[in-house]
């Protein structure tokens, strides 16, 4: 009982929601990428690898350029290039998209540590000074609003970017012609093709977008929240993002709500001194919740109809 009331008190503190939102955004960016990619019909379980690559190149670039903005851009390009490999292999060569995704993740784990050993000695990449990290941004006046100001307007710059992107992706997918086409390609590529839509071009674009977004998330992790790169630092976040995408039924806002739930769980754990549950048990929660959703306990979650099927014109 006291545990519940203590959590209740915790839920009334702005700091908790502040932390929850930041944690959610880290997952939201790759989750949005996953939504775009899978809506176009390309299964993407490679967000983990794209994020990890982005994190590495963000730090590597920042150590040379001393500019977090350019470094975030480099991270996006790195994530985008990884996505391009996934796209070429699964669209051009019509490979199994799950094998390709697994390969991307293994490749990212291997190549980042390989490059560290090659260029930075054994394990330590080096740490960045605070002035070279992605900054927190206080929005003038708005940050003075009680409670909401702390939660919404004293965040890292990437949090604002991500929330704007959330809106943009939603509008893009459900309110524009381009979005309609992306969804058509993911549901029924033959029909879309017949209607004159270029299936391949849209799928390439969608997959590469997922890499750009995942790369940005990697940058947020490495040069926003942290100040260095350590091997495998994404630690399954790309997969939690995948879970959020499914949990949110392949919609941007659904994914965001899932990310918030996962982020809130993390924040409650980090900020309380009452619950003596092992953090490791808590870490299982996102995955268990997603299994429950998949089991159909909380409504069915159905992927786009052509998700995972390579498009080969003229074979049917």
């Amino acid at each position: 009982m006291t545990v519940l009331s203590d959590i209740g008190h915790l839920l009334l503190t702005a700091d908790l929601w502040h932390a929850a939102l930041a944690a959610a955004v880290l997952l939201l960016l790759p989750a949005l990428g996953g939504v775009i990619s899978e809506r176009s019909g390309v299964v993407n379980i490679a967000m983990e690898g794209m994020m990890l690559t982005g994190a590495f190149f963000a730090v590597a670039a920042d150590l040379i350029l001393h500019d977090p903005w350019l470094s975030a851009l480099v991270a996006m390009v790195a994530g985008g290039l990884m996505a391009l490999i996934h796209a070429v292999v699964s669209i051009r060569f019509r490979a199994d998209q799950i094998v390709s995704g697994i390969a991307i993740n293994i490749f990212a784990t291997g190549i980042t540590v390989f490059l560290i050993n090659r260029f930075y000695g054994l394990q330590d990449v080096g740490h960045l000074p605070p002035s070279e990290l992605l900054p927190n941004l206080q929005i003038p006046l708005l940050d003075q609003i009680p409670f909401l100001g702390r939660v919404l307007f004293q965040q890292n710059v990437i949090v604002y970017v991500a929330l704007i992107l959330l809106l943009l992706v939603h509008v893009l997918l459900f309110r524009t012609r381009l979005g309609l086409r992306i969804r058509a390609v993911g549901e029924h590529p033959e029909a879309a093709d017949t209607a004159g839509i270029n299936v391949y071009r849209l799928r390439y674009g969608a997959v590469i977008s997922s890499g750009l977004l995942s790369g940005l998330s990697g940058a947020f992790l490495a040069i926003g929240i942290s100040n260095t790169f350590v091997p495998n630092m994404t630690d399954g976040r790309g997969y939690i993002a995948l879970a959020a995408m499914i949990f949110g039924k392949w919609t941007p806002f659904g994914a965001f709500i899932a990310c918030l739930i996962f982020g809130l769980g993390q924040a409650i754990y980090d900020n309380n001194s009452i619950i003596h549950v092992s953090q490791y048990l808590l870490s299982m929660l996102p995955y268990i919740l997603t299994l429950v959703v998949l089991a159909g306990v909380v409504g069915r979650s159905q992927p786009p109809a052509a998700d995972g099927i390579p498009y080969a014109p003229g074979t049917e």
Partner: peptide, 23 residues
């Protein structure tokens, strides 16, 4: 770095899945 092994493994996966030669 011994991690080159993972890079090789990923490359094997890519090429066997995509079946580059045949495609």
């Amino acid at each position: 770095s011994g991690n080159l092994v993972y890079v090789l493994q990923a490359l094997i996966l890519f090429s066997i899945a995509a079946n580059f030669l045949r495609t």
